[in-house]
């Protein structure tokens, strides 16, 4: 009896059952409504952009793993997230060849060189996005109006631009609410902003869907809710104060909150676990810092939008936050760093 060899493990012998690939998968689920909405509002173009971003991220991850003689880590789903996030931050008529390049840069420079998942100091998708912003500043600020007639069966010339060639913008281009405000002091209707009847990146337009996705993740404990809350609160409070000081110069807090990539960034990018602090208090500092930089860049900077830069800066600051803010260990006096 009982001839089988026993399985030996060290304690604890039970696990909560959450696993990293499961978290990653759920983040993908939480973003799917955004993908669907962006296809609904921007049509085939947005779909192609997102698919290309995902494909290039996954392919790059696979290729690099192979090249360096490791087994492929595609199955942990993190490359898929990077791809979707990258796709969601690009304009709907962004050329596919540039999108593909962005995916390669995201994974290669944003993740692989750092040692892969868990070591990437910066959000890979944002590294790719920042690269594209610097490389192709015109294409990445060429926006497209949403809910155009015929969007489901036509592909923009710009999207289909031949690799390495300059995209040609056909038809109308639209300004994002933020650039409209920055340059012409025109603010958009808050309801339009919240529900996504505006121009912008493929995934940033519908604040409501982003929040719903965030709530899903927060409830399933797969996202640190403190991060978006800290960022959004900071942006709201700061812009509210400024708005009170001079409501002609400074936009309303709700405009600040719902426009641009703030929601998407706060909910899906700043919350990237690898690049954010690990302690609850550290996370709040991180969120407040990002919110502050967003407001500074949007209000006083030369660019209409600063969420991407704010999060990358937050990522760079994270090691220091973790280093400086450590919880007091049980039974010890206040620890110094």
């Amino acid at each position: 009896m009982f001839s089988k060899t026993l399985h030996i493990s060290t304690s604890p012998h039970i696990r909560q059952g959450m696993s990293t690939d499961m978290i990653m998968r759920n983040v993908v689920y939480a973003m799917l409504p955004l993908v669907v909405f962006s296809v609904v509002s921007f049509g085939l173009n947005a779909l192609l952009v997102i698919i290309t971003a995902v494909a290039s991220s996954v392919l790059t991850e696979h290729a690099l793993c192979r090249w360096s003689g490791k087994s492929s880590t595609v199955s942990d789903w993190s490359a898929v997230i990077t791809g979707i996030l990258l796709g969601l931050t690009l304009p709907p008529i962004f050329p596919l060849w540039m999108t593909f390049l962005g995916g390669v840069v995201s994974i290669a420079i944003g993740k692989f060189v750092f040692g892969g998942l868990g070591s990437n100091a910066f959000n890979p998708a944002l590294v790719g996005r920042a690269f594209l912003q610097a490389a192709f500043p015109v294409a990445i600020t060429t926006w497209h109006p949403s809910f155009l007639e015929g969007r489901f069966y036509s592909i923009s010339k710009s999207v289909a631009a031949f690799p390495f060639s300059t995209p040609v913008v056909d038809g109308i281009s639209g300004a994002t609410p933020l650039s409209a405000f920055k340059f012409d002091k025109v603010t958009a209707d808050t309801a339009d902003l919240a529900f996504g009847f505006i121009s912008g990146s493929t995934g940033e337009t519908s604040a409501v869907l982003i929040i719903l996705g965030g709530i899903y993740l927060a409830v399933r404990k797969m996202m640190n809710w403190r991060i978006p809350v800290a960022i959004l609160t900071t942006v709201f409070v700061l812009s509210w104060i400024l708005h009170i000081i001079d409501n002609q110069v400074y936009p309303s807090p709700e405009f600040m909150l719902f426009s641009g990539g703030l929601m998407l960034g706060a909910v899906f990018m700043a919350t990237d676990m690898v690049g954010s602090p690990i302690t609850p208090r550290g996370v709040v500092v991180y969120g407040v810092f990002i919110g502050l930089i967003v407001v500074v860049i949007r209000i006083w900077g030369g660019l209409p939008e600063g969420v991407m830069y704010a999060i990358l800066l937050g990522n760079a600051l994270t090691p220091h936050i973790d280093n400086l803010i450590r919880p007091r260990v049980y039974g010890t006096k206040k620890t110094k760093s």
């Binding site: 959450m18 696993s19 990293t20 690939d21 978290i23 942990d76 892969g116 998942l117 868990g118 070591s119 404990k221 640190n224 676990m273 690898v274 954010s276 690990i278 302690t279 609850p280 996370v283 973790d322 450590r326 919880p327 007091r328 260990v329 049980y330 039974g331």
Partner: peptide
């Protein structure tokens, strides 16, 4: 075993507030 993604679950769990991830 996946790499540590610094999710902070262990930090939230540790009864004596250590940083198991680190």
């Amino acid at each position: 075993i996946f790499p540590c993604i610094k999710c902070g679950a262990c930090v939230d769990a540790c009864p004596i507030s250590l940083n198991p991830s680190k």
